[in-house]
């Protein structure tokens, strides 16, 4: 078992896909000569050439739409959008075309397209490079949303996404790229259907994904030292939600806190709360709680950015509240 980073894990997954399937190609802004704005695709241009590693002009709507067209034409495109904020320029193609064409055409066309993008805050990139809009995309029927939070998932979700006949959006939290750790040499494709229990526990369920998984696990350790045994669920797939895993956990713990870097209003965390109320109301021993980003555009200075984001102390405090213990 070697040591790797999240960035290298994604690159290994890209390399594997390009080797395995001649229909696969990568396109996006600066994925080639520059090596990717987060250096994920560094070296791929030299290895696979400009036909399969395509630098695009800065035209998100068109290169994402071209991904849709290429998928319709029998290719398996991987489109990299530099960051989730830029993907708003491609929203027309994602929401009006990628998500609709299968249903609107009466099932005649599938769109096996993978779109990868960086998401989230934590690197002082301010309000146009740091939002967490994946929950927003999870609102849209017709696309699948995944958020790899571990090295195994960074390594393994891409191939499964490529095998999916429908559009899959992969959100890579920008603070994870440098995350380092052991990864089995034989690590490969993983399922993208199920949430994962990253830490079993019996006192409450902490439900999270992506960039806040690490913070949530940290909070769970603090809680453990106080005698609170938290179960940590990594959603992994934000659409469709694996409600079975969430409900099983909450039926066991009877308490839940949702940790999400998105804003609270009209959000994924709100959706999970609503579904728990709908499906597990009588299982609950305490009100549900959420730890989310402050409802502001993410600011640049470190102290304000930190204050805007979910942090372990806030998660710990929310958990204590839910289990009825004040710190």
């Amino acid at each position: 078992m070697g040591t790797t980073t999240y960035r290298e894990a994604v690159r290994t997954a890209l390399t594997e896909a390009l080797v395995k399937d001649p229909r696969v190609f990568l396109m996006g802004e600066d994925v080639g000569k520059y090596g990717g704005s987060y250096a994920v695709s560094k070296g791929l241009l030299a290895e696979f050439g400009p036909e399969r590693i395509r630098d695009t002009p800065l035209s998100e709507s068109t290169f994402v739409g071209a991904g849709i067209g290429a998928a319709l034409g029998g290719m398996r495109p991987i489109v990299e959008v530099m960051t989730v904020n830029f993907s708003l320029l491609a929203l027309d193609q994602i929401v009006n075309n990628a998500a609709t064409i299968r249903h609107m055409s009466g099932g005649q066309f599938s769109i096996p397209l993978v779109i990868r993008m960086a998401t989230g805050a934590g690197r002082q990139l301010a309000a146009q490079h740091a939002h967490s809009l994946e929950g927003w995309y999870a609102h849209i029927p017709g696309i699948r949303i995944v958020a790899p939070a571990t090295l195994e998932d960074a390594r393994g979700m891409l191939w499964t996404a490529l095998e999916d006949p429908d559009p899959v959006l992969i959100f890579e939290h920008q603070t994870l790229y440098n995350m380092e750790g052991p990864l089995a040499d034989e690590a490969g494709a993983v399922d993208i259907d199920h949430a994962a229990i990253r830490r079993p526990g019996k006192d409450l369920s902490l439900i999270t994904y992506g960039g806040t998984l690490g913070k949530t696990l940290q909070a769970a350790e603090t809680l453990a030292s106080e005698g609170i045994d938290a179960e940590v669920i990594d959603l992994r797939t934000l659409r469709p939600l694996d409600m079975a895993t969430i409900l099983d956990s909450v039926k066991k713990t009877h308490r839940a806190v949702i940790v999400d870097e998105g804003w609270k209003s009209g959000s994924l965390s709100a959706e999970i709360v609503a579904r728990l109320v709908e499906h597990a109301f009588y299982e609950l021993d305490a009100p549900l709680a959420r730890v989310c980003s402050a409802e502001v555009p993410i600011p640049y200075p470190k102290h304000l950015e930190d204050a805007a984001l979910p942090q372990p102390p806030a998660i710990v405090a929310a958990a204590r509240e839910v289990v009825g213990r004040r710190g």
Partner: peptide, 29 residues
């Protein structure tokens, strides 16, 4: 939104300009 796989007829796009990137992608393929 007229689609017909047999005729290779890819819509029927009601977003003005929305079909152009798709055409580019079909041609790329």
């Amino acid at each position: 939104h007229v689609f017909d796989a047999q005729a290779r007829f890819y819509g029927g796009n009601a977003i003005v300009g929305g079909g152009l990137p798709i055409a580019v992608g079909l041609a790329l393929a």
